[in-house]
């Protein structure tokens, strides 16, 4: 009954050390990995002139907002790091406490290690053991000891000799070896002491009630609190990061959607304004208020004292729109999916969706002048770039020279996708065989609206080639990660800095419905945008066009189901829609020729 | 839920638009039933309504032959309005649907000829929404979209039409025409 406690604090340091290591080692590794990954992320993403211009055109209201709500940069001083540092100090302290603690040391010597005693390696053969024993016993044999040793030295050496003999026996003699292997000591089971790895005062005396209370608090309150908080958090947010109530509202809207409803960005904004996130942020504001704030943002109207509220809810629409897009594609509703992405653009660019959105998304454009002025109805950047610069200035109503230059630079750096080649491919096969797993491989050219147009067949076939080595066959999507991440978007009115993506939708042409959730394209090289290759200056394509200089982007869309089992041609429509800019989309039909 | 005995209508204040819509459907059905004189009615379409609509419609067709297109459009609109109002809610849906689609197809051609492209486009949308995916719907829709300068959508419609009917010559011609316009549109 009478447990002996760990008075000499021999065991509890090991216990605490073990617990600390179990917590610290993974935490440290995770933190280290994160820091390295963050560095790598910065290096891989490409910069673009739009970034600086976006900074320049960002209003101070948005700048203040970003400063206030930006994720805290100082990763190093983050709480987790402090915990790690404190933890390792504790470990160091414990280790030197263990090292300096005598009681532990002599307990350690109790451990019997024949190999150490004969100072041979644990894997030595019998011969080596024998020779080592012979050498040592000659040295330590009592008769061999020199006379002038003092009594206690002599006893130590004799003891040493006894140990060596024991060690030798433990390794050679059957019985003692049996003992050693079974009990760790040749003389059979040693006296082992069982105790509680806690100091006495913690268990016995007054502190014991404290301990009991501590346990009750831990198990009764603290643990349930954390578990319930964690559980309510996971319950209330879907994996797409939107609130469960918002997701169920969107699903309800989609489920009860009537063909007699007209899908416009207004309808999507109305749905967004019902989001639970907004209600959680500003419980006192009503849904109508949220809706009017979203309209204020799109029409670049100031919302007075609700300005911060407006910016906060606009920042939230990012996750909400992706959530809505996911649900819309799950319901296979193409119209709502495409209008949701159009709403995304109009929120990012704070420009309403009209037929002139491509022009109005540019900075410094005087909308009134432009609407009246545009004689031959310019609706695209490509069309805009057919005029000379000063003419463009007049059309857009920009007098100031530098502003015009900046506007033209933004217009020239907005990425447009040009389809070069698209096909269904099955890795390792030349055709799509029945019931195979094809994916859609699209070769695009990221070009500026300013560039001279050239037909895809101007680019020789070898530039399309992709290495057909083993791992690209095993995982065709791996090669996509070689492309740089997208640079920051020119979105001076959007509350947060963003780099956006293209959403790739796949639609079955037979019934015009979406067949899978969108694939987000966030890695493409924008190197071509740095080229001048202006359509107004390049005269004859033959001489000035050199295919090698142009980078070809690759988009790969996984196909959510196996190819049909019957041979034949199945038509799909692929829509690659940007969430950032107007006019940067692709929309083409792609046949899947299933052959034996 | 409140029931108003003299107007014989259901009402539910502050209900969501879905519920309001369902209630108005029930009210409409009740009104038609109350108004019905013939005790043992059947889903067979009323002969006299069909006759009236037919007469109105034939009149429109005659005017089309006489090249009086505006009047033709008017009488076809009248025929459609007649169908919308006269038909009761229990007359066979298939009959009502076919009748409406048939009249709309003619109305589309009249609108296109008279340059009312938006009207034609919306009628074509309606025909597609109600499951009419024949090539000539795609041809007309592509044509209307091109006239309305919506080249991106025109291309999508045309390509979809070609997916369903790859050998259609008119759609191919429209695709080429639209691609040319798109190139010009994009400068």
């Amino acid at each position: 009954q009478s447990y002996d406690y760990d008075e000499g604090s021999e065991t509890w340091p090991f216990f605490v050390l073990a617990v600390l290591c179990v917590v610290l080692v993974p935490l440290t590794l995770m933190q280290a990995y994160e820091i390295i990954a963050a560095k790598d992320e910065d290096s891989s993403s490409q910069s673009s002139p739009l970034e600086k211009l976006s900074e320049k055109y960002t209003g101070d209201q948005v700048k203040r907002f970003r400063a206030k709500f930006a994720p805290k940069k100082s990763k190093l001083l983050a709480r987790r790091n402090l915990v790690i540092i404190a933890g390792w100090c504790m470990v160091a302290f414990l280790i030197n406490k263990i090292g300096s603690n005598g009681a532990i040391k002599d307990a350690a010597t109790l451990l019997f290690d024949p190999y150490a005693l004969l100072d041979i390696s644990a894997s030595s053969t019998d011969r080596e053991i024998r020779s080592a024993y012979r050498k040592l016993s000659v040295k330590f044999h009592p008769d061999k000891l020199s006379k002038d040793l003092s009594a206690d030295e002599r006893t130590v050496l004799e003891e040493q000799y006894v140990m060596i003999t024991k060690a030798y026996k433990a390794l050679t003699d059957e019985i003692t070896r049996e003992n050693y292997l079974r009990y760790g000591h040749p003389d059979g089971p040693q006296a082992t002491s069982h105790g509680i790895a806690l100091p006495k005062f913690l268990v016995d005396s007054s502190a014991s009630t404290l301990m009991v209370l501590g346990y009750i608090a831990l198990l009764g309150f603290i643990l349930p609190f954390f578990v319930s908080r964690w559980w309510s958090k996971t319950q209330s947010f879907t994996k797409k990061g939107i609130h469960a109530r918002s997701a169920s509202y969107f699903a309800d809207r989609l489920f009860n959607f009537k063909p007699s409803q007209v899908v416009t960005t207004g309808l999507i904004l109305n749905w967004l304004s019902h989001a639970a996130e907004f209600k959680l942020l500003y419980p006192d504001l009503t849904q109508e208020t949220f809706e009017s704030l979203l309209y204020d943002h799109i029409n670049r109207r100031h919302s007075g004292e609700l300005e911060t509220a407006k910016l906060r809810i606009v920042a939230k629409t990012h996750a909400l729109l992706f959530g809505l897009l996911d649900i819309a594609t799950t319901f296979r509703n193409l119209e709502i999916s495409t209008v949701a992405i159009d709403t995304f653009k109009s929120i990012v660019q704070a420009t309403p969706l009209t037929s002139h959105s491509q022009i109005l998304q540019l900075p410094n454009v005087d909308a009134k002048r432009f609407e009246e002025g545009s004689v031959d109805d310019i609706r695209t950047l490509g069309k805009l770039f057919t005029f000379e610069d000063e003419k463009i200035g007049k059309i857009l109503g920009i007098e100031d020279e530098t502003k015009l230059r900046e506007t033209l630079s933004v217009a020239a750096n907005i990425p447009h996708l040009k389809l070069l080649r698209a096909e269904f491919t099955v890795p390792g096969e030349s055709v799509v065989t029945p019931l195979s797993t094809p994916h859609i491989s699209v070769k695009v050219l990221v070009r500026s609206a300013k560039h001279k147009f050239f037909t895809p067949n101007k680019i020789p076939d070898e530039l399309y080639k992709e290495e057909q080595d083993f791992d690209s066959l095993r995982d065709p999507f791996a090669s996509l990660s070689n492309q740089p991440a997208l640079p920051r978007t020119f979105a001076p009115h959007f509350p947060a800095k963003r780099s956006g993506c293209w959403c790739a939708l796949v639609v079955l042409q037979k019934d015009g419905k979406v067949i899978q959730t969108p694939m987000l394209v966030d890695r493409l090289s924008f190197a071509n945008l740095n080229k001048d290759f202006d359509k107004r200056t390049v005269k004859d394509l033959e001489k000035e066009f050199n295919p090698e200089e142009w980078e070809i982007g690759t988009i790969k869309i996984p196909f959510s189901q196996p190819a049909p089992d019957q041979k034949g041609d199945y038509y799909f429509r692929v829509i690659v829609k940007s969430t950032e800019y107007f006019g940067a989309d692709l929309d083409f039909t792609l046949p899947m020729m299933v052959r034996e | 839920l409140q029931y108003n005995p003299n107007s014989k209508l259901l009402g539910l204040p502050h209900s969501s638009e879905d519920v309001t819509m369902n209630i108005s459907q029930i009210n409409k059905l009740t009104q038609d039933l109350v108004a019905e004189t013939n005790a043992n009615f059947t889903p067979q379409p009323h002969a006299e309504s069909t006759a009236m609509i037919k007469k109105m419609f034939e009149n429109g067709l005659k005017q089309t032959q006489q090249q009086k297109l505006a009047d033709a459009l008017k009488s076809i609109n009248l025929a459609i309005e007649m169908a919308q109002r006269k038909r009761t809610t229990w007359e066979a849906f298939a009959v009502q649907l076919q009748e409406l689609q048939f009249m709309l197809k003619n109305r589309v051609d009249l609108c296109l000829v008279q340059g009312r492209f938006m009207d034609a486009l919306q009628d074509l949308d309606f025909l597609q929404n109600t499951g009419l995916n024949s090539s000539d719907v795609f041809i007309r829709k592509t044509d209307a979209l091109i006239k309305l300068k919506q080249y991106e959508q025109a291309r999508a419609e045309c390509e979809r039409g070609l997916s369903l009917d790859p050998t259609n010559v008119k759609l191919k011609a429209l695709l080429i025409e639209n691609t040319r316009r798109l190139a010009e549109y994009n400068g």
């Binding site: 009537k258 007209v262 | 059905l29 919308q84 038909r87 009207d119 919306q122 949308d125 309606f126 109600t130």
Partner: peptide, 22 residues
């Protein structure tokens, strides 16, 4: 039938919406 009528009524609404948008 009533849903069909509602969809037919929507034609007018859609005309206005798209006229504005385009």
């Amino acid at each position: 039938n009533q849903a069909l009528k509602r969809r037919y009524q929507a034609i007018l609404l859609r005309k206005d919406v798209f006229a504005v948008q385009w």
